[in-house]
Nucleic acid binder design. Structure first.
Lengths: 129, 129
DNA sequence: TTCATTTTACGAAACCATTCGTATATACTT
DNA sequence: AAGTATATACGAATGGTTTCGTAAAATGAA
């Protein structure tokens, strides 16, 4: 059985992952331009970061054309789940309900989304009746 | 109007804050012993961290007795709110409902807690009925 | 082919959190 | 008072991320 790593992307790495999850496989330039919308950053900085991420096996690279094409080696949902687990413990001492209450209380969430959540609640409570 | 900082405790700093939030004002020794339950760490390391946190004004210190007594300068809920906001953006691109669904789906939350959440949903949706 | 543009490669610097050794101060014990 | 234990103070080493300058390679244009 292969040793399962638990990748822990840094903040900058996560920004890059988000771009790639959203846009699909992309060149450094595309990622860099996307990041530049939110903050000042040098091209080679982005490049270096993505190269390091590839070394760490968080990204995979297609080097067949001159402009290498990167894509995430991590699934978005799995990664979110891991990050969430850590964050839950670190910030809310593991209390999921506290986290959920604060998340709902402090963000304008659409009625449709609230309904979706309510459905999930029904399913969860139904099972334990 | 005073300039409002947005403190960004690191992981280690957050661990210390959690102890202080939970136990109330404490000496370095008490905090250190609490931390030691979960991981190996030297006493002076904890001391130094807490001193740095005091410099950053995340903690306040009562130096009137030999063993200084530290307490958080930050409110637990406010801090959680800020951390949650950042985390939400970084990990879930701002989608609170996605975060909530994953948090609920992947943690055993008691019926009482689920009901509490349902109540909140009622209140939130009630307004738009 | 020559020149300009774009890309990757490499390495070093800057920065920051974390760790801890050692020194010094304070209080307690006998 | 002398010795022991416990506390704080200080400074430096470590380790990791982030940043970017510079060079080399690949491509495209004139």
């Amino acid at each position: 059985m292969t040793l399962e790593k638990t990748p822990k992307p840094t903040e900058s790495e996560l920004e890059i992952l988000q771009v790639l999850w959203q846009q699909g496989p992309s060149t450094v330039r595309v990622v860099h331009e996307e990041l530049s919308k939110n903050k000042e950053v040098g091209y080679t900085t982005t490049l270096k970061l993505m190269q390091i991420m590839a070394e760490k096996e968080m990204l995979e690279v297609d080097k067949s054309s001159r402009s290498h094409i990167y894509h995430p080696a991590l699934e978005e949902e799995k990664t979110q789940q891991q990050l969430l687990g850590r964050f839950l413990d670190a910030a809310f001492r593991g209390s999921a309900s506290k986290l959920v209450m604060q998340a709902l209380g402090n963000s304008k969430t659409s009625k449709a989304e609230l309904d979706e959540i309510r459905n999930l609640l029904d399913k969860l409570e139904g099972g334990s009746k």
